[in-house]
Amino acid sequence: MSAVLDPPLGAIAAASLRGVSKTYRHFHLRDIDLEFATGTVNGLIGPNGAGKSTIMRIMMGLVRPDRGTVAMLGRPASSSESSAKREIGYFSEDMRLYKAETIAFHMQFVRSLFPDWDERYAEELLDRFGLIAKQKIKGLSQGQRVKALLLLVLARRPKLLILDEPTNGLDPVAKQEVLSELMQTVKDEARTIVYSSHHTQDIEQICDTITFVDRGRVIASDDRDGFLNGWRRFRLQAPGSWVPPQIAGLRAEASFGNLRVMTIDRYRPDVEEQLEASGATLEGSEAMTLEEIFLATVTRGREECRR
């Protein structure tokens, strides 16, 4: 399944992928259609090896797709095209800086390529992140290394931020500092963020729209509230002879004796009435976390693939 989220009326897509596929020996990225509207924060959630990083590398022109087209800020994304990257900030968890050099060296290097580099903001970030410009990269902790990379990305004031697992390996304090800085960044409504993670809590905290990726495919895409309000889990008491009613969006059903648990992804207020009218006793209904929604979607998607 592929998904394209319609951008809000009047919004221009900051990035779009159409029919993008890429084949490696042991991995296939298939028919990815995605569109990220300007001024939105977009989350890509997927397990390790799902294809999130490949999607982002294709967006940056670091990996050439076998099929499909990619446009970034209205320009084609390719390794031969560098103009779009002037306005894009890319962070990847496996990206490294030069170990033997200092943060100041990297700031100087990046500044020389970006006329809009904001030196005052860079100094502010140094201070806020507790970094020392003269510190060598090899002496930094994992959290400091991530912050140094983010500083180099944020201080160029990019219109589009592509962040691939930026909070991986960070302690809770460092993670919160990084997420807070990103929240500050998105206060500017013209700025777009595409953020990938397998930590659903991070995505839930900052993203407006969310896309689930698994095994090289987009398996669901919606805005955050669409996911959180649309999914519900019901606990019912029903006799063994009970026949469940036809409910739109029924995703999973499990029985434990007379206890039934039903999960639906298109919740409407009349669902409770439908269930009770069918002869079951509703014990409770609860909203689901993004992680639970993600797991249910992945499980269902994999079952459908097996069939």
Binding site: M60, G61, L62, S79, S80, E81, S82, S83, K85, R86, I88, G89, Y90, F91, S92, D94, M95, R96, L97, V110, L113, F114, L149
Partner: peptide, 9 residues
């Protein structure tokens, strides 16, 4: 990866 994320073809 870091270098190629910069505006360089």
């Amino acid at each position: 990866t870091f270098v190629m994320s910069l505006p360089i073809s």
